[in-house]
Design a protein around this nucleic acid. Sequence first.
DNA 1: TTACATGCAAACGGTTTGCAGGGGA
DNA 2: TCCCCTGCAAACCGTTTGCATGTAA
Lengths: 151, 151
Amino acid sequence: MNTVETRVQGLVEKLRQQDCRITPQRLAILYTLAASHNHPSVDQIFEKVKGDFPTTSIATVYKTISLLKGMGELIEFSFGDGSNHYDGRDPSPHPHFICQVCRRIDDIDIPELAHLSHHLVEGRDYRINALHVNAWGICPACQAAAKQKKA
Amino acid sequence: MNTVETRVQGLVEKLRQQDCRITPQRLAILYTLAASHNHPSVDQIFEKVKGDFPTTSIATVYKTISLLKGMGELIEFSFGDGSNHYDGRDPSPHPHFICQVCRRIDDIDIPELAHLSHHLVEGRDYRINALHVNAWGICPACQAAAKQKKA
DNA sequence: TTACATGCAAACGGTTTGCAGGGGA
DNA sequence: TCCCCTGCAAACCGTTTGCATGTAA
């Protein structure tokens, strides 16, 4: 069983525990979320799901996303491009990189961050539950494109 | 000359350099931005400005905010509460704390972060221009309120 | 069989835009 | 005077909601 399948099964399990029904539309949304590495918007999820279920309505996608968000099974981002983006593959907060040119959103690894988070919670009046880190810049592909254009 | 006045003068200077006119409405918006420590939304800025200029329209606030954003003189946040928030007092990226209970947004100090940012830009394919850090949790006031309620 | 999910369409709210009139420089 | 800015209102767009119908369990 691959990673996607495992994640979908886990989500199905949790939905069942909440007495939620597993409809074909919901299953398609779960698969899309579990397989997406590009932090899709609701509209992008909707377009993907429509491929399998052409009658799916965007309201259903919103409702399912909202349900999963309430269960803590996905994280929501607002990157200021007008729509929210979601990560249902890994719902724990982790650092992201946003390309200022092509707007792609990648996971990035910042090993020092775990250490930093640990330090942060100590000796503060604020209780810190989660640290959201977003790095803005230019991705390798857009850097290469810029270099080629210049030459 | 205090800090607010200094920041307003700086903004006026920069607007003049761009051949922008200094209208009373714009000046009121600049003062509100320079004096606000609570990362206001457009609507909150609008309400404040209306105190001095009751005829001001919210479209003017949006247009001025957009102008300043394009000049790099304020930073925009999306915290998922439906509206954007702005910091025109200090437009350089700095860590924020968002209270999950009362939604207040405070600047917080994370000394280790400067060190981290410096490390991040080295040895990566991604070019990182800015690091946005948002800590989510519960502010001192809401912690105290929760404790009192429990007792 | 029955309560929950779907899908349509209308409503909602923050933001943007077009345009006629007003006011800085 | 000239052109930019203002303010009104309509448009826009992502998201939410109400409700009749459909369907998983």
